[in-house]
């Protein structure tokens, strides 16, 4: 596999790591499966592209994407908590509504960002050299900037999850009955969690649109599964013993996911096969621990039977 493909995979993995952080917040912290993600990712891309083309500063446009994505998440949260709609359905409803909204925002199905100043052109203009050891390029200059940006976001999330409000959010997903008995409105914490999560997802969408040079109305399709793949693969490979560790793990999971995809492409699979590959990765990562546990348990029973009779 060529170096360029690997470097590209790492850059993408870092950007999609932000998506993974967002999915982690709902899927693991709030314990709510949120399908808004597919819509809010494209929403982030659409908002950023539209405002950049209209001459807004790319930083501001990206921030706007974060805020609007947060609103979309809050909408799902209100549907779920106040409207008492099942979480999966609430997410699907927002997602499908966003498809039309995204088209409205963009005015057409695809917005190219050619010759526009974007965060990505800024990063390239910084001219940071590639990191090479012994003639082998390990990281592109762009990836180094991405690492810094993604780590800053990660640390902000780590901090937030350790504040009073963050503890409430975590307890809402962990034991909602308990946290209500301590005076926390779990409706509010759920809405805040969904807003923050979709804000991050939209931020990822905004960055990805600028990185790939266009926003597309279909760019969000399958993002929830990619996010889940990153979270699950990250947790399995890099552990989840503490918040600090698991937020790092999901970002690394995202990079691993991109590398796997790069390898699959290198082996001659079509880009259109990638959704299938993604689904298979998630199915594999979800079932293997369960199956392995079953085998382990059977072995334990067998050992106990063979070992001593007082079991």
């Amino acid at each position: 596999m060529n170096q360029l493909a690997i470097m590209g995979a790492i850059e993408q993995g870092l950007l999609f790591g932000i998506l993974a952080l967002g999915v982690y917040l709902t899927f693991r912290i709030l314990n709510v499966p949120d399908l808004t993600v597919d819509g809010s990712f494209a929403l982030g891309g659409a908002i950023a592209a539209k405002f950049i083309i209209d001459g807004t500063n790319p930083f501001l446009a990206t921030l706007l994407a974060f805020i609007v994505g947060g609103l979309a998440g809050a909408f799902t949260g209100v549907l779920h908590t106040k409207g008492k709609i099942n979480a999966l359905l609430a997410g699907i409803l927002t997602m499908i509504a966003l498809y039309s909204i995204n088209l409205r925002v963009m005015g057409k199905a695809n917005l190219p960002l050619l010759r526009e100043d974007t965060l990505f052109t800024y990063v390239k203009d910084m001219g940071i050299p590639n990191l090479a050891v012994g003639g082998v390029t390990l990281l592109s200059g762009v990836a180094i900037v991405f690492i810094v940006g993604v780590m800053v976001l990660k640390l902000i999330i780590d901090w937030f999850l350790h504040t009073d409000m963050g503890l409430d959010l975590r307890a809402t997903g962990d034991n909602s009955k308990m946290i209500r008995s301590f005076g926390v409105n779990t409706d509010s914490t759920t809405i805040i969690g969904l807003a923050l999560s979709n804000g991050l997802v939209a931020l990822a969408g905004a960055w990805v649109a600028q990185y790939q040079g266009f926003a597309d109305v279909g760019m969000g399709i399958g993002m929830i599964v990619i996010g889940l793949a990153s979270v699950i693969v990250g947790e399995v490979l890099f552990g989840s013993s503490s918040i600090f560790r698991v937020t790092l793990a999901v970002i690394l999971g995202s990079i691993v996911y991109r590398l796997v995809i790069a390898i699959a492409l290198d082996q001659g699979l079509n880009p259109s096969d990638m959704k299938l590959i993604t689904a298979l990765i998630v199915i594999f990562a979800l079932t293997v621990p369960t199956v392995a546990k079953g085998i382990w348990k059977k072995q334990a029973v067998r050992t106990a039977r063979g070992g001593s009779s007082d079991a």
Binding site: H162, T163, D164, M165, L167, D168, F182, G183, V184
Partner: peptide, 10 residues
């Protein structure tokens, strides 16, 4: 923090 306002302090 029972019944108190939640903040962004640690």
């Amino acid at each position: 923090g029972r019944g108190k306002r939640r903040t962004l302090g640690f």
